[in-house]
């Protein structure tokens, strides 16, 4: 079953960030209002009218959440070996290098140590612009190392997901990263270290079906697409139109799948409160 298809039409792909990079005025994807770009920036790259959060890069996400100057990036020196020798219209390694240049990020996830509202944590943020945030061997390895670093430093883990799922170009090895990351989180949990998962637009496929849904607390940004199978795959399978709002954050909240939907402006403070709750461990101090 093709359960992590990405596509470029309306319901999944959003071109709004491209528009943001250009003119002074842009149109919101959600409420269709014409909005002033500087106001969007001030609102944490969200629509100032309807608070719809635009897709942001991993760097912007880290800037939004980590205390200024606190982020210490890790493991930027891992590179795929193209284990399948995969080639479609381009060679896989060329695709990876082009993505790295375009996003100025070594892979589809950025990991490191950070402070969030003064509280130490391991913070991982996905770069959707890097091959759709897809998870191959390097992403799996970076996440596993990040989780092991958290165990080592005795700090919580925060992962902000934005991913189409497993990376097809690494085939079965991508699938196995689901096992690797989930096993690492099992270890983290056994040490009673908290993990907060933040789901952003879009989080689908093998990423949702592994670490993204394993948070002790699972937060989502408003109106994010979150699911196992992509909406088009489901529509093709069941040959029926999908219900309004299907697989959006609000749908998941209504079905008991996530803890809360948090406005981007409130995200850092919400994380701080959650981390502060878990940091308060008088009995574990000894």
């Amino acid at each position: 079953m093709p359960w992590f298809k990405r596509k470029t039409d309306g319901s999944e792909g959003k071109a709004s960030t491209v528009q943001i990079a250009e003119g002074l005025w842009i149109k919101c994807d959600s409420c269709k209002e014409i909005i002033y770009r500087a106001e969007v920036e001030r609102a944490g790259r969200a629509c100032p009218k309807c608070h719809y959060p635009f897709r942001i890069s991993a760097r912007e996400r880290i800037a939004l959440l980590a205390d200024p100057g606190s982020f210490e990036e890790r493991d930027t020196n891992l590179e795929t070996t193209d284990p399948l020798g995969f080639k479609d219209t381009k060679k896989y390694r060329d695709r990876v290098r082009a993505a790295a240049q375009k996003t100025r990020t070594d892979e589809a996830v950025v990991t490191g140590l950070a402070r969030i509202g003064g509280l130490p944590s391991v913070l991982c943020a996905f770069e959707f612009g890097f091959l759709g945030g897809s998870m191959g061997s390097v992403v799996g390895e970076k996440l596993a190392r990040a989780i092991e670093l958290a165990i080592d430093k005795h700090v919580p883990v925060v992962i902000v997901s934005a991913s189409g799922g497993a990376r097809m170009q690494e085939g079965i090895l991508s699938l196995m990263q689901m096992a690797k990351t989930s096993a690492a989180l099992e270890r983290l949990g056994a040490r009673r270290l908290p993990y907060v998962s933040v789901l952003t637009d879009p989080t689908t496929g093998g990423v949702t079906a592994s670490f993204a849904m394993l948070g002790d607390v699972i937060l989502a940004e408003p109106r994010a697409l979150i699911g196992f199978a992509g909406p088009r795959v489901i529509a093709e399978t069941i040959r029926q139109p999908l219900p309004e709002g299907f697989q959006r954050s609000e749908f998941l909240l209504a079905h008991g799948q996530i803890d809360a939907i948090v406005d981007r402006r409130e995200l850092k403070e919400t994380l701080r409160r959650i981390l502060a709750f878990f940091a308060d461990r008088p009995s574990a101090a000894g």
Binding site: M1, W3, M178, A179, S182, A183, L185, E186, G189, T208, A209, S210, F211, A212, M213, L214, G227, F228, A229, G230, V233, I234, T237, I238, L242, P243, F246, Q247, F251, H255, G256, Q257
Partner: peptide, 19 residues
């Protein structure tokens, strides 16, 4: 890949099994 499967947490069920 179906509506009911998504409503009832297909991704969560798989993830929980892995862990």
């Amino acid at each position: 890949p179906g509506i009911g499967a998504e409503e009832r947490g297909q991704a969560e069920a798989i993830a929980r099994n892995l862990r």
